[in-house]
Design a protein around this nucleic acid. Structure first.
Length: 613
DNA sequence: ATAGGGTTAG
């Protein structure tokens, strides 16, 4: 019922396994009413409401909502029709369930209306609504964050600014992600209401720190225009109490750097001096990082000289940015040279420096050197956080040196460093990739023992391990447990989809793919898996058709799509069609990589001069 | 109190 994940035969088997010995249960009165209501709704016979209104209990209605969650319009009609008759609809839970369904189907208009109705006509406070939305959030897949966005929007639309803020704050304290949209909406609203007189009345008087938080938030939400507007209006909005300071400017400077415009960031830096707001080391460090992360290393070094001329001393943050950039460019000797310069200038490397060195050496193929460096650091009791260990463990696993990874974990324990979820997750994945699922499960057990909660990534790794080893029962069991925990995503089902393809469960493949599309869990990878399947069967027309569907869904084909299609097509015979397909994919945004070129160039060479190969 | 540098696992 949830996702057509398994063929009905298998599903029954599994359900029976779960309910151990309890094959059939006598339906309760509620079950019977529920059946009757569903039948009537499906046939749109609304008269039944008169007869059954007294039986329409709260849990029953919620159950009906769940049953019809893929038909939002039908539910909405049902809701509107019982609205006039039954008192139950005061129930927050019922309405929240409905809101989840609406948002999940991207019917934001109705969702907003329902939310406003709850707060205005029914008098529920936004925080009560939020609670109800959280408790009913298992109804739909992955729509919670959109639901919260809608709540914030509903608050701002009815003018409840503080409530909108309260909702955001509550989400933050409860560790729910506050989306860019929610922040943007709130910030936009603040701007629209112009003066902060409202805020002042309720005892909130924004100072420059509050504004800086808003401005930084706007920059991180990729809305620089809003950030600039806010900065311009600090004085008027605070009734002359606050002015932009160096932190305000640093936020804007950082905003431009992250947007890929370090040259504008430098202009702002110069303007700060004009405006009598002195730039500080952080300002320079930010712009240096802006230049280096955008590939302008020479400009970055120029700015370093400029800051020294102005009497600033580049600190570890400045060096870290440059060293990191050099490593990413593969310039190991450049990075090493700069690190010795750092030492000569008595700037101590910090834990970030060591992480950069670890990753820089590893990704350039110097894993042994990275391990040596790491030992050197740890022996001197300098830094060693889980983060830098995780980098090394990850690369050791990738290079199939599980033994080395294990030793590193041991040394963590010896030094009293506590492995975190990523450490465990990395090891679990390493074991799974090395076909050692039992060891992976062992680590998983250790992890649970010391009270670390597994997360989605961990489950997906183990699932992949189970599928690869063809532990069918374990895989099915795990997927069902994950669904119960409401912990799954596109990767989960892509793993299963891929497994079905590999083991030739064709009926299951199509059922699952259809379900994934219905609930919005089909992504690029899902399409690639399906395209590959079609190609394997020689169904190129179907494969190309699916490529078309992919494009209409706004999914850009990637190099995997390309390689799959082109390799398979050229296996048949190299033809003009391959070249046509190549051109088409490149126009659609595929960036060919080494493998893709091989896919098209190899067969071409073979065709032109067979003796070449 | 607010601003900079490493995002490691599917």
């Amino acid at each position: 019922m949830f996702l057509g994940l398994f063929s009905s035969k298998r599903r029954n088997l599994f359900v029976r396994g779960l309910h151990f010995g309890k094959k059939f249960t006598t339906p309760t009165a509620e079950d019977i009413v529920f059946k009757a209501v569903c039948v009537n709704i499906r046939q749109k016979k609304w008269n039944f409401l008169d007869q059954l209104s007294s039986s329409l209990t709260d849990p029953l209605i919620s159950r009906v909502f769940r049953e019809f969650r893929s038909s939002p319009q039908l539910i909405l009609e049902f809701y509107r029709r019982i609205g006039g008759r039954v008192a139950i609809l005061q129930s927050l839970e019922c309405c929240s369930t409905l809101i989840h369904v609406m948002v999940h189907h991207k019917n934001y208009e109705d969702a907003l209306d329902l939310l406003k109705e709850l707060m205005i006509s029914k008098g529920h406070s936004p925080l009560e609504v939020l609670d109800a939305l959280i408790t009913t959030s298992e109804v739909c897949l992955q729509s919670s964050s959109n639901v919260f966005d809608s709540l914030v929007r509903a608050c701002t639309q009815i003018g409840a600014t503080e409530d909108a803020y309260k909702v955001i704050k509550k989400l933050k304290t409860d560790n729910y992600p506050v989306s860019i949209h929610a922040w943007n909406n709130f910030l936009n609203h603040l701007l629209k209401i112009g003066d902060v007189g409202r805020m002042l009345k309720s005892g909130i008087s924004p100072n420059v720190v509050a504004f800086n938080m808003l401005i930084d938030g706007a920059c991180r939400a990729d809305d620089l225009d809003l950030a600039l507007k806010l900065m311009k209006r600090i004085e008027t909005m605070s009734s002359g109490c606050a002015y932009p300071n160096e932190v305000t400017y640093n936020c804007i400077v950082n905003g431009y750097c992250k947007k890929g415009k370090p040259e504008i960031a430098e202009e702002i830096l110069d303007k700060m001096i004009e405006m009598n707001v002195a730039p500080n080391v952080r300002t320079y460090a930010t712009v240096v990082d802006g230049y280096s992360r955008n590939g302008y290393l020479e400009e970055a070094f120029r700015l370093c000289n400029k800051m020294v001329e102005k009497g600033f001393v580049p600190n570890s943050a400045v060096y870290n940015s440059l060293v990191h950039c050099l490593y990413m460019e593969g310039d190991i000797s450049g990075a090493t040279l700069l690190l010795s310069d750092m030492m000569e200038n008595c700037i101590n490397p910090d834990r970030i420096t060591h992480s950069i060195i670890a990753k820089g050496l590893c990704r350039n193929g110097w894993i042994n050197e990275a391990v040596k460096h790491h030992k050197w650091i740890v022996e001197r009791n300098l830094f060693g956080d889980a983060f830098s260990h995780n980098i090394l463990i990850s690369y050791l696993c990738r290079s199939e040196n599980i033994r080395g990874a294990e030793q590193l974990i041991c040394s963590m324990f010896v030094r009293g460093l506590i492995p975190d979820v990523v450490t465990y997750g990395t090891m679990i994945d390493g074991y799974c990739k090395a076909n050692r699922v039992e060891s992976a499960v062992g680590i998983y057990t250790d992890m649970i023992k010391i009270d670390k909660n597994p997360n989605l990534v961990v489950f997906n790794s183990i699932l992949d391990g189970f599928c690869k080893e063809e532990f069918v029962d374990s895989s099915i069991y795990l997927v069902n447990e994950m669904k119960k925990l409401n912990m799954y995503d596109a990767v989960t089902f892509n793993t299963v989809l891929n497994w079905y393809c590999c083991s030739g469960k064709i009926e299951e493949v199509f059922d699952l793919f259809t379900s994934m599309r219905e609930v919005g869990l089909a992504n690029k990878v899902s399409y690639n898996i399906m395209i590959n399947l079609f190609c394997k069967f020689g169904l190129f027309e179907h494969a190309k058709e699916l490529l078309g569907v992919m494009l209409t869904r706004g999914l850009t084909p990637d190099s995997v799509t390309y390689t799959t299609l082109v390799t398979n097509l050229s296996k048949k015979s190299f033809s003009e069609e391959v070249v046509k397909l190549h051109d088409y994919l490149v126009i659609q945004g595929v960036i060919p990589d080494n493998q893709t070129y091989q896919a098209v160039v190899r067969p071409a060479i073979r065709e032109i001069s067979p003796e070449f190969e």
